[in-house]
């Protein structure tokens, strides 16, 4: 996914870069309504998503309720 960056004025900081909107314009219709998985395009993105999104199963840097007690 391409991230959009906006430049904004911040009091005391001058011009700063902020992450722009990440939603896609328009309204999905038909079968596409509610679909989200196709937003992840490459295999790397998908694996990264699993590492973060499903971190307690597939992440190595996250500590859910269990790993604190039983180091994996």
């Amino acid at each position: 996914m391409e991230y959009k960056v906006d430049k904004k004025e911040s009091p005391g900081w001058g011009e700063v870069e902020v992450l722009g909107e990440t939603y896609e314009e328009g309204r999905p219709e038909g079968e596409d309504l509610g679909r989200w998985r196709q937003k992840l395009a490459s295999r790397e993105e998908k694996l990264r998503y699993l590492e973060n999104g499903e971190r307690y199963w597939y992440g190595t840097e996250w500590f859910g309720s269990e790993k604190r007690k039983n180091p994996a």
């Binding site: 694996l47 499903e54 597939y58």
Partner: peptide, 12 residues
């Protein structure tokens, strides 16, 4: 059809 789920199960 769902590569992401394929990768997930592969990791499992």
């Amino acid at each position: 059809k769902d590569e992401q789920k394929l990768l997930q199960v592969a990791l499992d």
